[in-house]
Design a binder for these strands. Structure first.
Length: 855
RNA sequence: GCCCGAGUGGCGAAAUGGCAGACGCAUCGGACUUAAAAUCCGAAGACGGGUCACUCCGUCGUGUGGGUUCGAGUCCCACCUCGGGCACCA
């Protein structure tokens, strides 16, 4: 214990201590390492998951070990640490773990470039980043540290894959997939709206490849519906997920090829326009064409068109600006509602992977169909009449997409279109050529990658038995170390004969291992479960423990994961729930997405901190110059935590000065504080100035608590603490002050240290001991607000005339409305402004304000 | 095009419909110092006015234009700019 408190120094004499400790700048370089070591020695953040105390699972998104972090990364961990420390003081048993999302491309690229093995590269980076996190003063239960690249972890990632396979939720198929030259295959979620790779920015092309998918589409309705349970998530994230899942209600209608009778179903949200169909538009990739075309009259034209479209990148073809093009197929389709036939066109504006790849075209009521019809002189047929300005097909300059009255639609004529919509589908359903359908935009999740540095997909391809899962007791399928990274021939794993050749677990014959690895997203989809039982060698996690600790009470991370990690994790947990492994269907009760830290780059513009922009700020130097507490305080003070913020180097001065002032106050008044230790403040004994300070203290306790609890408003919490210190200075307590004044002074500093301890833990620990307490400020209870202390004798009442402030008066607390009104009218300032006016109305806000409406 | 979010001093920002600019940065003035740094005290939205001076007074002011209200940064309507998500999704 002697190592942590300052008693040894004090033994040398108070004067010497004061001289030593009251130096110009507080010695953060001494106290910060000291307390970090003490937290380690005390296992201050160790969490016993078998506890029965109220639990709080505080999780910050774990990082990819890229090598080193900048101050922007720190915001995430610091906020989580503030919350964890605060919850501990509120009596919760807090689980705050940390780990590494350690599979991924940079390690493999480094291997290619420098010859470093991905394993040593990754573990080297982890060691450095762990040191950085430690130097920030962020506390975790490091006994629970995990790295997704460790065989003890990825063994269970592979196990999860096998559960999906068992449940029919993992499958392999050949399909056009997103392809990035560097990152290999990509999930749709990893492709930006511009058609580039989310990770490296290269253009993404479509390639036909045999790949592994997870059937996330089967969970689309639940993933969407359950968003409504996530009330403690940012509205923005829920909307982004809802957009991504993209539900639309409509009908599936069975058209048929007139010439052959082949079915050609469509999905439509506008069956009310079905009597206005004048052609059918299908995607060039539509499989029906391969059946119809051979030997047909238009075959050559159509094939030429299809081949030309195949060469155009998907992003370009999907762009709004791309002109609509098409070619007549030579075939027709029969509309089951009318019995009539319309021509079948192959077009570039219909997407094969949404709906059925075929669209019933209604030029009169759909702008895209309209543009196409005008270009190719196809007929326009109005079936929804505009009640305000009747439409004629020949004169229309644009499609009429609003609501109106149905015409030329058999028995539905005369009805408002929206109202008839259900009946139209019902009619088709009764006649068995249509059905109510819900369509989703989300596609299945592509999870295989042609990369070495990932968890091998645990299946074996047997020429006799087909795809055979690796038996669970043979997991993990280990990643071999001895691979050739210099080879240009694709996935290094595929070139490793020792890995590839194996025997079939079913028939014992020669077989080949799958050489694709799992996308790192799958590794990070379940890590929050593993933290509960990180060293369990018999199962991924313990059901009972996880039932107690999950869902995560507070998850903190960047909004960039809104439709990647956060959607995938929800999906995986739902599947595990269905498999009986998890009791809950949602992993994260509350989510907080922090804003990014930006900085002006050399071009004067503001960018998110990144190595490529050269606008990063390293925490290492700042911690060396100002200390971790100052860096933490500035990071939190910079602005509202959910908003992006601009890092300004000079801004750190404010928090630094504040902490130095706090430090000096405690050390300057060392004797006074010690002497006052035995006498708690008593309201009745206080004179006006100390009662005001005492009230301010309790107001601060109230507002800081509220700021942390409601909305993570750390910036205002810190401002409140600064105000309290300013108020404390104003009181000017000295040795000569009264005993009650000294008691209030001590109580204020003591509580200020407690209130600040989650934010600046090292200084708080040090000052806490200095004020005579046992080490371990986190064991102290969080301050509580005394209602009696909040009461004031007088209130300041604002006097307004027609909403403009004309004076202020001090009145006794609890003053009546009538007294307030009379005092206002009697006020000389008010009378002056009222000269020549008559008061028409008096508004009184009790204890606050009188407004006289006069004219 | 659709759906979110933001717009307040030189800057970061704060304000349950009730004193706009708390808190902090930068700036300026003063004290301390041989000097500087640090620290402490003080000033400060803009424009105009008044006084020897201090206290002071007026007008304007939260992206723009309307509205509701005794009273609007805050609520409503329309619009502008910036950021994010979705988008030939049938």
């Amino acid at each position: 214990m002697a190592c942590v408190c300052s008693r040894t120094r004090k033994a040398a004499g108070k004067a010497a201590v004061a001289g030593d400790r009251m130096q110009e700048k507080y010695p953060f370089y001494e106290i910060e390492p000291k307390w970090q070591a003490w937290w380690d020695a005390q296992q201050a953040f160790a969490c016993d998951t078998r506890t029965t105390q109220p639990k709080f699972y505080c999780l910050t998104m774990f990082p990819y070990p890229s090598g080193s972090m900048h101050v922007g990364h720190g915001r995430n961990y610091i906020m989580g640490d503030v919350l964890a420390r605060y919850k501990k003081m509120r009596g919760f048993h807090v689980l705050a773990p940390m780990g590494w999302d350690a599979f991924g491309l940079p390690a493999e690229n480094a291997a290619k470039k420098n010859g470093t093995h991905p394993k040593s590269y990754t573990y080297g980076n982890i060691a450095h980043m762990k040191e950085q996190i430690r130097s920030w003063g962020v506390g975790y239960d490091w006994r629970r540290e995990i790295a997704t690249c460790h065989p003890d972890y990825y063994r269970w990632t592979q196990w999860i894959f096998l559960q999906f396979l068992k449940m029919g939720l993992a499958y392999r198929r050949e399909a056009p997939v997103n392809w990035c030259e560097l990152c290999t295959t990509l999930a749709n979620e990893e492709v930006t709206a511009e058609g580039t790779c989310d990770r490296c920015g290269r253009p993404v092309a479509k390639r036909n490849l045999k790949q592994w998918f997870f059937k996330i589409t089967a969970y689309a309705p639940r993933l969407l519906d359950d968003l409504s349970q996530l009330q403690a998530w940012p509205e923005k994230v829920r909307q982004m997920q809802a957009n991504w899942i993209g539900r639309s209600e409509g009908a599936r209608v069975q058209f048929t090829i007139t010439e052959t009778g082949d079915p050609c179903p469509v999905f439509t949200t506008r069956p009310d326009t079905i009597y206005g169909v004048t052609f059918m538009a299908i995607a060039p990739e539509h499989p029906l064409l391969q059946k119809l075309l051979p030997g047909s009259a238009q075959e050559a034209d159509v094939r030429a068109f299809i081949e030309r479209q195949a060469l155009i990148p998907a992003a370009e073809r999907a762009a709004d600006a791309t002109a609509k093009e098409g070619v007549f197929s030579g075939f027709h389709v029969t509309n089951p509602y009318t019995g009539g036939a319309v021509p079948l066109w192959v077009t570039n504006y219909v997407l094969m992977d949404y709906g059925t790849g075929a669209v019933m075209a209604v030029p009169a009521h759909d702008q895209r169909d309209f543009a196409f019809a005008r270009k190719y002189q196809l007929p326009v047929r109005v079936v929804i009449q505009n009640p305000e300005a009747p439409l004629t097909a020949d004169d229309m300059a644009a499609a009429f997409e609003d609501n109106g009255t149905m015409i030329d639609s058999d028995q539905f004529n005369g009805r408002p279109n929206r109202e008839a919509l259900r009946d139209i589908i019902q009619h088709g359903q009764d006649q068995q050529f249509a059905a109510f359908t819900t369509n989703y935009r989300i596609r299945d999740w592509l999870i295989s990658r042609q990369r070495y540095w990932g968890a091998p997909i645990p299946v074996i391809h047997c020429p006799q038995c087909g795809i055979v899962p690796v038996p669970e007791d043979q997991l993990p399928v280990l990643l071999p170390d001895d691979v050739d990274f210099q080879s240009e021939r694709g996935n290094p794993l595929a070139n490793h004969d020792g890995f590839r050749h194996t025997t079939c677990p079913t028939c014992g014959g020669a077989a080949e291992r799958e050489t694709d690895t799992l996308a790192q997203w799958l590794c990070s989809c379940w890590y929050f479960l593993r933290y509960v039982n990180p060293r369990d060698n018999t199962q991924p996690f313990d059901k009972a423990d996880v039932a107690h600790w999950l869902p995560v009470d507070q998850y903190i991370g960047g909004v960039e994961h809104a439709v990647l990690h956060l959607l995938y994790s929800r999906f995986v947990v739902k599947v595990l729930h269905d498999a009986g492994w998890c009791r809950y269907a949602e992993p994260f009760t509350a989510l907080f997405t922090q804003g990014m830290i930006c900085k002006r780059a050399d071009d004067g513009k503001l960018y998110k901190m990144s190595k490529s922009k050269g606008n990063t700020v390293s925490p290492d130097e700042l911690i060396a110059n100002y200390g971790a507490d100052t860096l933490r305080l500035y990071t939190l003070f910079i602005g509202p935590p959910e908003m992006d913020a601009e890092w300004q180097d000079a801004g750190i001065q404010g928090p630094y000065r504040f902490l130095n002032r706090l430090w000096r106050r405690v050390w300057e008044t060392h004797d006074l504080l010690r002497a006052a230790a035995g006498t708690p403040p008593v309201l009745a004994h206080m004179a006006r100035p100390e009662r005001d300070l005492y009230r301010k203290l309790h107001q601060t306790i109230q507002s800081v608590t509220d700021a942390i609890e409601n909305g993570f408003r750390f910036n205002t919490a810190i401002a409140q603490a600064m105000e309290l210190l300013n108020a404390l200075d104003d009181l000017k307590v000295t040795e000569a002050s009264s005993a009650p004044a000294k008691a209030v002074y001590r109580a204020t500093l003591e509580n200020l240290v407690l209130l600040l301890s989650p934010f600046v833990p090292h200084m708080a620990e040090e000052l806490w001991v200095e004020m005579g307490h046992q080490p371990g400020v986190m064991q102290a209870p969080w301050p509580t607000c005394e209602q009696a202390a909040l009461a004031a004798d007088t209130v300041e009442v604002v006097l307004q005339i027609n909403g403009k402030v004309r004076g202020k008066i001090e009145l006794p607390a609890g003053v009546s409305r009538e007294e307030m009104e009379q005092s206002a009218l009697a006020n000389p300032q008010v009378q002056k402004h009222l000269a020549g006016l008559t008061v028409k109305k008096v508004i009184v806000v009790p204890g606050k304000l009188v407004n006289l409406a006069a004219g």
